[in-house]
């Protein structure tokens, strides 16, 4: 826990300073999770504010302070899920959807040489975006929480309110679907990263 239980209690009682303390303690971690869940840096703060907005109005429903962190993760997952669904509906043109030539042109237009490290990170981001973009938002979020954020099955149980076996089945299926996209991507590009 990044905050004391009594701070949570004060925030539940409507203490705005206590609520601010919670936001300051968790915002970086939550923004990081959102950044990796949605992979759109320009929208991370907006989704992050939505998470804490939901937290503010639902803090009174928190039964015990012990479940606060899984509960905050659940709010994060729900906000990211809503965002990804909206994005899907919009069918926006993304960098990962563009041809290699368009990406090269966009890079050139952006100017400036990238370092090797930055180039590697960009390729990883685009690869993962291509992989996770090919599956449903549910699969994407579940896999990201498990494989990228490193949440344990026990923690995921608390976030999703389902049994460990159900989670294992869902994770297995999500992995299968991403593996299929991974193989297809590997065939088209020769190598993935």
């Amino acid at each position: 826990m990044l905050v004391e239980f009594d701070v949570l209690e004060q925030a539940r009682g409507g203490n705005e300073a206590a609520f601010n303390a919670i936001v300051r303690a968790y915002r970086k971690r939550i923004l990081g999770t959102i950044a990796r869940l949605i992979n759109r840096p320009e929208d991370v703060e907006d989704v992050g504010q939505e998470v804490f907005l939901r937290l503010y109005f639902s803090l009174g429903q928190l039964r015990t302070p012990e479940v606060f962190e899984p509960w905050l993760y659940r709010l994060t997952v729900n906000a990211a899920y809503d965002y990804l669904r909206r994005q899907r509906r919009r069918h926006e043109s993304r960098m990962s959807d563009l041809s290699e030539q368009q990406v090269t042109m966009a890079d050139a237009a952006a100017g400036g040489k990238r370092s090797e490290d930055e180039e590697y990170r960009r390729r990883v981001r685009e690869t993962v975006e291509a992989l996770l973009g090919s599956v449903s938002p549910e699969d994407r979020i579940l896999l990201t929480l498990k494989e990228v954020e490193g949440l344990s099955l026990r923690e995921l149980e608390q976030v999703y309110h389902v049994s460990e076996n159900t989670l294992k089945v869902r994770l297995f299926r999500a992995r299968q679907r991403v593996m299929k996209a991974f193989d297809a991507l590997a065939k088209t590009t020769g190598e993935v990263t």
């Binding site: 971690r29 990081g32 703060e45 804490f52 960009r122 981001r125 990228v148 992995r175």
Partner: peptide, 25 residues
């Protein structure tokens, strides 16, 4: 695949919140 997803964690670090985060919230 696990390797790529683990590398993704490194490629997207936790961003620093902007100054307008709290007022906006």
């Amino acid at each position: 695949l696990t390797g790529v997803l683990a590398a993704y964690r490194e490629a997207v670090p936790d961003p620093e919140p902007g100054e307008s985060f709290m007022p906006g919230l």
